[in-house]
């Protein structure tokens, strides 16, 4: 049995022939589409390393069956920067040293982008911490991560205001 699907991944429309319905979105990206930036830390929705945005929402790609997706827009870590131009969240993670080994980092960044879009946390660090608690970091880079989210959000807000002006 094979399923043919169309997905928009990082802005590119891709037709995917899936020969096995067991394939998760995470394994599709990593093993079949050469997009290994998204990481597998637990494969059970318990660590957040596999976080991607599907139709604008952050989700665990390890618990998403690829077969179930149709015409979905998927944003992975590989699609966040515009060429050489890093996303403000990426810049902030480097500046705040919100990473050490870097393995959870793609998931942290996708989660942070999702969190900022959700617009529930505002400038409240406690809400950011809670909102980022679905992304484990064994190195313990949490201070930098929280600061990076707050800083990036400010930058994004400022640039949005500039656009409005």
């Amino acid at each position: 049995m094979s399923l043919t699907k169309t997905l928009v991944i990082n802005g590119l429309k891709r037709t995917i022939v899936l020969d096995d319905p067991r394939v998760t979105l995470l394994d599709l990206l990593r093993e079949r589409l050469d997009l290994p930036g998204t990481k597998k830390g637990c494969d059970r929705g318990q660590c957040g390393a596999c976080t991607v945005l599907v139709n604008g929402r952050r989700i665990n790609s390890c618990l998403t069956l690829a077969a179930s997706l149709d015409n979905a827009e998927i944003l992975t870590i590989e699609g966040v920067a515009q060429g050489e131009q890093l996303h403000p969240v990426q810049d902030a993670f480097i500046a705040c040293d919100g990473l050490q080994c870097g393995y959870c980092t793609p998931g942290q960044i996708m989660s942070a982008i999702g969190l900022i879009q959700e617009a529930q946390a505002g400038d409240d660090a406690e809400r950011v911490r809670e909102g980022m608690s679905g992304n484990l970091c064994r190195c313990g880079a949490y201070q930098g991560i929280t600061q990076a989210v707050l800083d990036a959000q400010k930058v994004m807000r400022a640039s949005k205001q500039q656009e409005v002006v």
Binding site: G45, T51, R58, I59, N60, G114, L115, S133
Partner: peptide, 9 residues
């Protein structure tokens, strides 16, 4: 309950 990612799904 759970995490933002899981609640989104």
């Amino acid at each position: 309950g759970a995490t933002a990612q899981l609640r989104n799904a």
